[in-house]
Design a protein around this nucleic acid. Structure first.
Lengths: 199, 199
DNA sequence: AAAATATTTGAACATTCGTTCAAATCATAA
DNA sequence: TTATGATTTGAACGAATGTTCAAATATTTT
């Protein structure tokens, strides 16, 4: 017999996906284990078969997406060649891409950090700091070679990162612009912010 | 007899301030009425003397700060003279100023909109839309007079607003820069984003 | 086939939740 | 003083919370 049509068997990923959906829509504390179970189409106790607690669901989601973001940015930078403007363009594009393709995870990762336990939060913050360091390095390189000119590097970097992160707040897949176009335009904005002079 | 030294009498503002503090630190759903009462130094039932429900506390906070933001931006623009670059500078400064001076309210207003009831949320969103329209008008005026040159106005406006809003996320009063300096630097970034050419 | 393992369940647990209310206290005015 | 109204309280309500667990069901292995 092929798969049932009603509710396919609920495994680890189904529970995690249901938790993500719920956290995204209602927030971590606004979501109950019963709500997650209902979305997953299984019993509450079933979720506890895969995850020891509610906060472990949040941890799994946040650490995963944060690590993936850092990895994606490293790949993007490595593939962009040596020019700082190309590298900045690449990491802004990659940042926006991940925050649109995996919007729910990104949003939850940015808004529910405080709901994480102390140790897990420190782990996530460490990853986030590495993302910040990567942006800072790229901008610094451009300033050293005088291809970027901005009077306040740290504020520019912070502003670029927060504007990119906020994409997960307002993006709609059925909006007027495809995600790639948004990434492209945000890259241009970022280059303006660091004072890149197009020749 | 003068005021008691231990716990001064708890009025409406004390309860509201305690709720703000709690919502800011733990989020709306992560905060219990008992926690608010403990911070206010009064009984749980005391909070219900001033507010009919927990969500009314949130509504009072969010509608107040959102209306104040819109009003502050209008004042800033009106006082900046006719030049678009002066107006943009003024509203960015005012935006950052409010998001630092009233950081907790701003943060809660930006993150807990979804926890509001349907009607109240619509009211807050309407105010927010007016803030967006104000920014858009200023940028449009600059583009019409060719003092701003940016290929994608809407994305620039959105990015400026989100980067300014995010200040409430990371700002610390004991950080390295005074709030006014942050506002000044963010204004420069915004002018870069809309392609303002300094003469 | 039976045995062993992996998955899924419903019912129950102690605790905390938002909210209500009658009674107690305080301040003010007559 | 007594009387009136505003403020504050402790105790209680039913409902919802995160979590546990022994039993039931599938699945795999022998």
């Amino acid at each position: 017999m092929s798969q049932a049509e009603a509710t396919l068997p609920a495994g680890r990923d189904v529970v995690l996906g249901a938790a993500l959906e719920a956290f995204f829509e209602q927030g971590y504390h606004g979501t109950s284990m019963r709500n997650i179970a209902a979305r997953a189409g299984s019993a509450v106790s079933h979720a506890y078969y895969y995850f020891p607690s509610k906060s472990d669901l949040l941890r799994a989601l946040i650490l995963q997406v944060t690590a993936d973001l850092l990895a994606a940015l490293k790949v993007a930078r490595a593939g962009a060649g040596p020019a700082p403007e190309a590298q900045l363009r690449a990491i802004v594009r990659a940042h926006v891409a991940l925050h649109t393709e995996r919007q729910a995870e990104s949003f939850v990762g940015n808004t529910e950090l405080r709901s994480l336990g102390e140790g897990d939060r420190a782990q996530a913050v460490a990853l986030r700091d590495q993302v910040g360091a990567l942006f800072r390095n790229v901008v610094s390189a451009g300033m050293d070679r005088d291809v970027f000119r901005c009077p306040h590097r740290d504020e520019a970097v912070l502003a670029i990162m927060t504007m990119c992160t906020s994409v997960a707040t307002w993006y709609r897949a059925d909006g007027p612009l495809p995600a790639e176009v948004i990434g492209e335009r945000y890259a241009e904005l970022a280059l303006n912010m660091v004072g890149w002079q197009n020749n």
